[in-house]
Write a protein that binds this DNA or RNA. Structure first.
Ligand code: SF4
Ligand code: SF4
Lengths: 135, 135
DNA sequence: CCATTTAAGACCGTTTTTGTCCTTTTTACT
DNA sequence: AGTAAAAAGGACAAAAACGGTCTTAAATGG
């Protein structure tokens, strides 16, 4: 239950690898893939979505590659996870458009809201800098 | 991300309905299904797995049905969720058989362990009695 | 025996996951 | 200008998970 997908796991491995590099250094996706044990084409897709959100910068052509879009200390684990997995939603009724008619009288709903808040808080409290240098 | 399946949601709705009944009263799965808006045959399956674990007792034949296997105060939300969704595993490396070779040196692993612990603690702290009478 | 109700398992369409492959675009270097 | 090196983008697809249904069997009370 509540399992991160491989995409999420790969995303973290990949961007943490970037965070470990010297700031400003451009890295090939092929290098990241090999170092982290992630299928290269899959990782490329993941990095593309990172790039759209500004989490990484990319350069095409010879000498191209990826690097972090901002300092590692300014990227949280939550941002990484939500970039590829979407918002943290332990149950359907926690989406922005309240989807369950029982929501008003439901006693379970607040429990899921707490779960959501706790997970978000933990993930918000961890940055790529923490992960890159071993907390 | 981290979304409860419909099976899990249905399971909670169903067993909370049982918890709201007078202790000892036997309820038909058809009644629970109608009251909670869950497909009956699907709910029947869910209740079967509850029965195997002792969360509910069942009686077959005329006058049969379901009731809680022990007092509502002795059944936690975690037990209900894990009965149908399996253990709370935010990431693969948190299964009993450590499946990731990086686990020893990984800085992300402890974060997921924290998440696991927090979710478990929240769900452990809520009983069917709480849910039945509105906390 | 018969109606009722759960138990158990086979089955099945849809969606999501987990990728691959191919073409295009951008860029640097010669 | 030509070419090689990357990432960008999109189509495709096998496998797994999800969300159920259906059928048959077993128990139970009348
Ligand atoms: S019944 Fe309660 S917990 Fe379930 S989806 Fe509706 S509001 Fe959420
Ligand atoms: S790399 Fe770390 S977080 Fe990812 S599966 Fe392995 S131990 Fe867990």
């Amino acid at each position: 239950m509540m399992e991160l997908t491989r995409k999420g796991e790969y995303a973290i491995r990949g961007i943490v690898y970037l965070a470990k590099q010297a700031p400003g250094k451009v890295i090939l996706v092929s290098e990241v893939a090999e170092a982290t044990g992630v299928p290269q084409t899959f990782l490329a897709k993941i990095f593309q979505s990172f790039a759209k959100l500004g989490l990484v910068n990319s350069f095409r052509g010879t000498g191209g590659g990826f690097l972090l879009g901002r300092p590692a200390a300014k990227i949280t684990l939550r941002q990484v996870v939500e970039a590829v997995e979407g918002p943290i939603i332990p149950n359907r009724c926690l989406t922005e458009d309240g989807s369950c008619i029982r929501e008003n009288i439901c006693t379970v709903h607040p429990v899921w809201r707490r779960v959501q808040g706790e997970i978000a808080a933990i993930l918000d409290g961890v940055t790529l800098e923490d992960l890159a240098r071993g907390e």
